[in-house]
């Protein structure tokens, strides 16, 4: 059947509007569905952990504090103040030791060596230009208390 050209143009416009409406609405629904399927990016939460009194940290000494995952954090009192490093070797995850006499961190697995600031100076970590991960430290000077910012356990 022959159609009225005015009707045909009108039909096209209405069809176009309808198509836009459908695409937009179902598109938004699809987008929401995709967001739903993507697990939310949750930053690992950190929390402050009590790490003893400032007075108990002698200059030049290193103490180990256990974090919430059970890993040791090596806390050092240097000239600039308290610094803390993760004891996990960045090479392959073994735990480093502090050697007081040599003034360095040593990893027994592949003989990686880190200086007193945690920068790798020998062994595979040094080859890769790695360093011990730094753990943020807060010192409450009024109370003389040291806190470490550690990863929270999400149960």
């Amino acid at each position: 059947m022959g159609e009225d050209p005015k009707l045909t143009r009108r039909s096209w416009i209405i069809s176009a509007v309808m198509a836009v409406g459908l695409v937009l609405s179902y598109g938004v629904l699809a987008a929401q569905g995709v967001l739903y399927l993507l697990p939310p990016l949750v930053k690992p939460r950190t929390r402050k952990l009590f790490a003893g009194q400032l007075a108990n940290y002698e200059l030049g000494s290193v103490r180990a504090v256990v974090d919430l995952q059970g890993n040791q954090i090596l806390v050092k009192r240097g000239r600039e103040g308290i610094e803390a490093y993760s004891s996990v070797c960045p090479h392959l995850g073994c735990r480093v030791h502090w050697q007081q006499e040599e003034g360095r961190f040593f990893c027994p697995c592949h003989r990686g060596v880190f200086d007193a600031e945690g920068v790798a100076i020998a062994g595979p970590p040094a080859d890769a230009g790695q360093r011990l991960a730094e753990v943020p430290v807060t010192v409450d000077t009024k109370g003389g208390v040291v806190y470490l910012e550690v990863k929270d356990l999400r149960s």
């Binding site: 929401q32 569905g33 967001l35 739903y36 993507l38 697990p39 939310p40």
Partner: peptide
């Protein structure tokens, strides 16, 4: 509560 649009789905 946690999943995005989870309540909606």
């Amino acid at each position: 509560t946690d999943i995005r649009f989870g309540w909606f789905i």
